[in-house]
Amino acid sequence: MSVNDFWTPFALLPFLNALIIGISLISIWLIAALGLTIIYGTMGVINMAHGEFIMLGAYSTYVLQTLIGIPFLLCLPLSFLILAAIGWVIERGVIRTLYRRPLDTLLATWGLSLILVQGVRLIFGGEPQYVGVPSWLNFQIQADFIHLSGLRLFIIVMAIVMVAVTWFLLYRTTLGICVRAVMQDKEMAASFGIDANRIYSLTFCYGAGLAGVAGSMFGALKTLFPDMGGGYIVEAFLVVVVGGVQLAGSVLSASLLGELNSIFSYFTNDTFARFVLFTLVVVFLRIRPQGLLAEKMTRR
């Protein structure tokens, strides 16, 4: 392959379109990472099963839509509730006993992810399944070269909504104050009468629920099969770690990573873009291991 084949020549409109695609990538990365940010940020639990929560969200949409016949839009909140319920059971059953042993949580959640993948495979089989997109999302916005599909626009809007709701809950409600208090110092918060265990339960449910909504949309956009979680967990961790494990940081890092990925993919190709991106992340974390924005908080 010659140099000319490798580099796509610059053209303004396709490049602008690449920037818009970047926004779409940002929304996908952010949605994948949001639940992880909440759970990791608040509880310090490195949830290796996060990708599988996304997968379960996608499968609940599949079941609701194909087997029960519920419209796609209604599947989103229902997936949230289903995954929040699953998250609650998992938090009570597994995570709760491991709060003082972060490395064991890592192993336990990884084991959990294997169980979930295999469980889904036993029930639904290993072949990919189909989630339909409602016909009113089958439109494209087109202005000369600028081009965006309806489903992607919907996902961008959903990303904004999910971040806004999460921000509101964290920074504008009494519950949010409690969550942030527990984040900063669990013992001190407890001495002020905050039930830290209840806060942990709630945040884990909420984080799992967000993963459920993410799964609903990814199932429609991409491929729905038992192993799909593995692809998202890498992106999600990348966003969370680069961002510095907090909400604003995740938004910022997802924005940077998504746009860079899209721009590199435009000029070279997708495989090379990923290589460049991962290299940049490694170099960045060498210089600034705490991430882009890091709140001062106690180490657990």
Binding site: D5, P14, S24, F145, N269, D270, A273
Partner: peptide, 20 residues
């Protein structure tokens, strides 16, 4: 001519070039 990694599922950057 473009290649995606095995398991890759994001094709919009490629479709952008296809449109070009």
């Amino acid at each position: 001519e473009d290649y995606v990694p095995l398991g890759g599922s994001e094709f919009t950057p490629i479709f952008n070039k296809v449109r070009q």
